[in-house]
Design a protein around this nucleic acid. Structure first.
Lengths: 207, 207
DNA sequence: CATAGCTTGTGAAGAATTTCACAAGCCTCC
DNA sequence: GGAGGCTTGTGAAATTCTTCACAAGCTATG
């Protein structure tokens, strides 16, 4: 299949958010223009994004909301649930472990890990915090597909190397560090400092 | 000034992270190639990114680490400190309020707001949680430039409208909602579901 | 001072992404 | 059943972003 741009995938995810909203409001169909307005893009962009994967609408009518939701969920790979491990049960890790959004979006937290014995044993949203040393064995046993890193910056690369060695191929990194991973491993980093600095730049260079 | 791409600004921020690392390790100069390797890009990209803002290196030598740090901090607008308010003192809001990275990167949390009377009064990292109703008055008095939204999805747009009306021009949104803001207001949304879905897509369409 | 060895800064080329614009198709209403 | 009014899907054009490639310039060395 042709390569799909990262920006396209993010927009598809965003469309899915809005479609779910539309469905809750009882709308049966939606046009590319309406979807575009919600997502801050253009109708041509919406149609082009979808066209990479097929043809989902009806000319003159628009898209069936629930059909398009199903199609997007299929495209994004959300038909099965994805098991996830969270490494690091500090402030951010604990907050994420208790975040309900994981479950409602098809992701199951199957393990939370920490090196601090004081935190081990604690249960976060029903999932007990387990010792960091258990990480490899648990990945082998529970086969999570995604690891979420919430460890201090300097620990992030070593932990990444460990989870990759244990078979993980997708990582969401909240540690303030830029990571390098082998070919075939997808890493997304969410860096608070960078987000704030982009805002500072925007404010500094305001019109 | 010519328009600077978002991706360029994010890379500048990333370069700054690495330069700080290099400086801690005692390196005095760095070449575009070394900086590129750390940041997962190319030397040409590094030089092009910097060239939008001027000429910072010495041919044959590279860049002076501390000079380039100073230049980047100037470019990104990090020479002064930026006051920030956090709206929502739930799990994520509280975790952020206690995150040390704000302070070390030049951002000061001057207020945390919540509607829940049980949380009001609590002090997070020295900053007391104040009643949500106080938000507008405090923005007028303390003049924060950035608002971080950690409220439930359905509350995000109303809160955004309020902080914009009160004079805020830059918003970092952690609520699971896509927001619309008037011209001149920069909004960055960090959406857990989208990040995870991009990973699910990558895993589903793995080679 | 001339040469060798690096590395920057930058036009130009190339690639990727977004926007345009329009034929094709569906529905409704007369 | 034909006309009118919408909306999709998609090549082509336009724009934006990245990579290439090389002249220019700095340092060190003999």
């Amino acid at each position: 299949m042709k390569h799909i741009a990262d920006s396209t995938v993010r927009r598809l995810s965003l469309y899915l958010r809005f479609l779910e909203e539309f469905e809750r409001h009882g709308h049966a169909t939606i046009s590319s223009g309406e979807l575009a307005r919600s997502g801050g893009t253009t109708s041509a962009q919406v149609r082009k994004d979808l066209s990479f994967f097929g043809s989902f609408g009806k000319r003159g009518l628009g898209y069936g909301v629930s059909d398009l939701i199903a199609s997007l969920r299929h495209i994004l790979g959300l038909e099965a649930r994805w098991p996830v491990v969270i490494v690091g049960a500090g402030k951010i890790g604990a907050a994420l472990a208790q975040y309900r959004g994981f479950g409602t979006h098809g992701f199951d937290v199957v393990g939370v890990y920490d090196t601090d014995p004081a935190r081990v044993g604690e249960a976060l949203n029903g999932v007990p915090v387990r010792p960091d040393a258990q990480l490899e064995a648990d990945i082998a046993a529970l086969r999570p597909r995604i690891a979420v890193l919430c460890v201090p910056g300097e620990a992030a690369q070593p932990v990444l190397d460990r989870v990759v060695a244990a078979g993980i191929r997708a990582v969401l990194n909240f540690a303030p560090a830029a990571l390098t991973a082998p070919e075939g491993v997808t890493v997304r980093t969410v860096n608070m400092a960078t987000e704030l600095e982009v805002l500072a730049f925007a404010l500094t260079n305001a019109p």
